[in-house]
Design a protein around this nucleic acid. Structure first.
Lengths: 209, 209
DNA sequence: AATCAGTTTAATCATTTGATTAAATAAAAT
DNA sequence: ATTTTATTTAATCAAATGATTAAACTGATT
């Protein structure tokens, strides 16, 4: 029975609490998480949690804020650069697939909070970087008759949906379809190729490259 | 300040409780929902809730069970019939888009429970009907060289992801992209055409029909 | 060594929350 | 009309939970 507590080695109480809080909040969500869960996970006293972070709310705000900004940052770093369009898609799908494989509860964590408290997003997610470059890129290519006209929101929705939602569907999918866990993970790898193909295939009027 | 309580007219206490419970559980999730919230929403005493449904857990099981079976039922009814493939996709996208527009918190409700307690799915979701017909249909068309070979799980994932995830992304999308609510809803309508096009376009080696 | 600021702990508090009880009320059966 | 059964209510309980307190401990400074 490995409880797999956060390791103490060389880590301050403050850091341990934040790490433990992240783990538990992401795993169970805000309401289902008790301060005592976090304290136990961190191997500290409940009072220490309040000493460093004042309240459960404040601690949660810290955790969800970091998750939101990280999501935003990675997204921006991929799309606010000069890669060709199909490369952007490829990089996005690969990066996010690998990340979510390692952190399978993170998407639900972010989405649950953003749906239950939409104002959190505006309050805590950086708004500086935007997806302007992507919009410009799509408009240019469409103007040249290379791709079909498409709102960049659709482009984003398609790519993000096809990449992330299969993780959220996992329990329902495995129940509806005879599929082993191994097969499921093979399919996820398949998608690193398939998703970019699908998107580019639909977007480009003539083949790219 | 309309509290918009569940209407009493011609409805038994038992029904009122179930309706109120569905509304509150779907809205806030299991852990954040208090039995007192449900009682207030239904306009009844907390004891009545226990009189009819024994416990918060039992009541929740009823609500999530119905949601799971309904999701499953609609899915099966669309795919276990003899429509041409592109019609199945079209019907699915249209039906689910309209449903979720009216019940925007339902997808998160189902997904959150299925991720936090995967055993709930196996316990409460009917397993009788399956997606065999779809699998057969895909294999036949592939055998005839009409469509490319594709695991039916991919087909399902693509269609469900493209249809449902944009609703879950709403707060994040509106934050990242300059987009009014009206524009957002126009985009969702666009997708009723776009998603089937995208999927069929990728799947068929020659144009269908 | 004595002092002091920073940290950690055990004990406790006040509130919330799921659940129960016993009494009141309504409805149905005799 | 009286008895019996089903439903609803107000009051209360015990456990859980976020937060606080006061004391103990730690390590640096004088």
């Amino acid at each position: 029975m490995d409880k797999n507590l956060i390791p103490d080695k060389e880590m301050s109480t403050e850091e341990r609490i934040k790490l433990a809080a992240t783990k538990v909040f992401v795993q169970k969500g805000y309401a289902a998480t008790k301060t005592r869960d976090i304290a136990e996970e961190a191997g500290i006293n409940i009072a220490s949690l309040h000493y460093y972070y004042r309240s459960k709310d404040k601690l949660f705000e810290l955790v969800i804020g970091e998750a939101l900004r990280n999501f935003s940052k990675v997204m921006d770093s991929i799309f606010n650069n000069d890669l060709p369009l199909h490369e952007k898609v490829r990089v996005f799908v690969e990066r996010y697939t690998d990340f979510i494989k390692e952190n399978p509860m993170v998407p639900l964590f972010i989405i649950a909070e953003s749906q239950h408290n939409p104002e959190t997003v505006d309050k805590l997610m950086a708004h500086e970087q935007t997806l302007d470059k992507l919009e410009v890129q799509l408009k240019e290519l469409a103007g040249q008759g290379i791709i079909r006209k498409m709102h960049h929101a659709h482009f984003i929705m398609n790519m993000v949906s096809l990449t992330i939602f299969p993780f959220l569907m996992k329990p329902l999918l495995l129940h509806k379809i005879e599929l082993s866990l191994d097969e499921y993970y093979v399919l996820l790898e398949d998608r690193k190729k398939m998703i970019p193909e699908m998107i580019i295939n639909y977007l480009y009027l003539k083949k790219p490259d």
